Amino acid sequence: MQVRFAEDHISFLSYGFRGAMVHPMGMLTPAMIRDADWKAIRPEIRTARGETLFLPHDQKADLEAFCHRHGIAGVSRPDTWGDLLEPFLDTRIDADQERATIDRLHGAGFAQEAITGIRRRLAPIMLAYNFGAMVWEWIHLGLFDLLTAANASVIDPALQAELGDPAAFYEWTMAIAEHHR
């Protein structure tokens, strides 16, 4: 991932997530940006059409300055994907923690059947990503990790193909990321 900031736009010179409006290269102007979160684990831009785009960690300050310069709001939102992907962490989740996660997902409008279905659909690729590819993440897996798993060369292409059309899968992930609104 390579991003360059200019006075009046952000250029994505290398963006590896198939389906993204800036894949493999693209540009955003301030009018195309709804809000941003430069304080997130991985800085995020949310486009006017509801897409979440990620930036390298070391460009948090660049994103913040760009947003301040153009009056773009800084907004943190609930991490729906972090909750949905919690079972794939390399850690033991106790009953209270799992109950709290399910309560947050229910509060965001997810029925239990939807939660179960999403997790079942993603189990093969997330297990291959976190354990097969030896990522061993034990604190947080989120949308960035899911998109990485769906696009990484270290993941079996057959598992990635099971996700369906890359652009349709990407749109599905973005819709879920926006679901809480």
Rank of each mutant, 00 (worst) to 15 (best):
residue 1 M to F: 12
residue 2 Q to D: 15
residue 2 Q to L: 12
residue 2 Q to E: 15
residue 4 R to E: 11
residue 4 R to N: 06
residue 7 E to D: 14
residue 9 H to A: 12
residue 10 I to R: 04
residue 11 S to R: 11
residue 16 G to H: 13
residue 18 R to E: 15
residue 20 A to I: 10
residue 20 A to F: 05
residue 21 M to V: 10
residue 22 V to L: 08
residue 22 V to N: 07
residue 23 H to P: 11
residue 23 H to V: 02
residue 25 M to L: 12
residue 26 G to W: 02
residue 26 G to S: 06
residue 26 G to E: 07
residue 28 L to Y: 03
residue 28 L to T: 01
residue 28 L to C: 01
residue 29 T to H: 14
residue 32 M to W: 00
residue 33 I to F: 05
residue 35 D to W: 09
residue 41 I to T: 15
residue 42 R to Q: 11
residue 42 R to M: 12
residue 45 I to T: 01
residue 49 R to M: 07
residue 51 E to I: 01
residue 53 L to M: 03
residue 55 L to D: 08
residue 55 L to N: 09
residue 60 K to C: 13
residue 60 K to V: 09
residue 61 A to R: 09
residue 62 D to P: 01
residue 62 D to K: 08
residue 63 L to A: 07
residue 63 L to M: 04
residue 66 F to H: 08
residue 67 C to D: 06
residue 67 C to K: 09
residue 69 R to P: 07
residue 70 H to E: 08
residue 70 H to F: 03
residue 71 G to I: 09
residue 74 G to C: 13
residue 77 R to I: 15
residue 78 P to H: 00
residue 79 D to Q: 08
residue 82 G to T: 08
residue 90 D to T: 11
residue 90 D to G: 13
residue 92 R to A: 08
residue 92 R to K: 08
residue 94 D to K: 02
residue 99 R to P: 02
residue 100 A to G: 12
residue 100 A to S: 13
residue 101 T to I: 14
residue 104 R to V: 03
residue 105 L to Q: 01
residue 106 H to Q: 10
residue 107 G to L: 01
residue 112 Q to R: 10
residue 115 I to W: 00
residue 115 I to D: 01
residue 116 T to N: 05
residue 118 I to Q: 02
residue 118 I to L: 10
residue 119 R to V: 02
residue 121 R to F: 02
residue 121 R to Q: 12
residue 121 R to N: 04
residue 123 A to H: 03
residue 125 I to M: 03
residue 125 I to C: 02
residue 127 L to P: 00
residue 129 Y to W: 15
residue 130 N to C: 06
residue 130 N to E: 07
residue 132 G to Y: 05
residue 133 A to L: 04
residue 134 M to N: 13
residue 134 M to Y: 07
residue 138 W to V: 00
residue 141 L to N: 09
residue 142 G to E: 04
residue 143 L to S: 07
residue 145 D to C: 03
residue 146 L to I: 12
residue 151 N to K: 04
residue 152 A to W: 11
residue 152 A to R: 12
residue 159 L to N: 01
residue 159 L to Y: 00
residue 160 Q to W: 10
residue 161 A to K: 15
residue 161 A to Q: 15
residue 167 A to M: 00
residue 168 A to D: 15
residue 170 Y to F: 13
residue 170 Y to I: 05
residue 171 E to I: 02
residue 171 E to C: 08
residue 173 T to V: 09
residue 175 A to I: 03
residue 176 I to Y: 00
residue 176 I to T: 10
residue 177 A to S: 14
residue 180 H to T: 00
residue 180 H to L: 01
